[in-house]
């Protein structure tokens, strides 16, 4: 209820977005996604081979609330690249299929039909700390 806490959490989220070139807010972790949409988005990011930071929004419902306040987007997952909101699972999937995602990530050559073995990039686990 305290505005102080809310503001701090929102600032932490904004800082995480600013400081990580590729950051995914998701349900669960890349190793253990807790929702099919988050799992699909993680799989796409891993298949393009770009390391990304991940934030699990499940531990505290206020993370999701504040995140949606930042992005003006109601659903999870949410992907940010270079500080910009890119979209959720549907948009990331479409962008992956059209090659736009690879471009946005600075990976010009899209791995099209060849489907190389998905390389497990090292995801950087990240925790938004809540000081309750």
């Amino acid at each position: 209820m305290s505005d102080q806490t809310t503001n701090t959490l929102r600032e932490q989220i904004q800082t995480a977005i600013d400081e990580n070139p590729v950051i995914l807010f998701m349900k669960g972790t890349p190793e253990q996604p807790m929702c099919g949409f988050s799992a699909r988005t993680v799989a796409i990011l891993q298949s393009v081979g770009r390391p990304f930071a991940a934030v699990n929004i499940l531990p505290d419902p206020r993370i999701r609330q504040e995140l949606s306040g930042v992005s003006n987007w109601p659903t999870i997952p949410q992907l940010f690249i270079d500080g910009d909101f890119v979209g959720g699972c549907d948009i990331v999937t479409e962008m992956y299929e059209s090659g736009e995602l690879q471009q946005a990530l600075g990976l010009e050559s899209a791995p099209a039909e060849a489907a190389p073995a998905p390389q497990a990039s090292e995801p950087a686990p990240l925790t938004i700390e809540n000081r309750l």
Binding site: N72, W73, F85, V86, G87, G88, I91
Partner: peptide, 10 residues
């Protein structure tokens, strides 16, 4: 943009 289109639906 796609994001704006989806927002209209949401």
């Amino acid at each position: 943009t796609r994001i704006a289109q989806h927002r209209l639906v949401y």
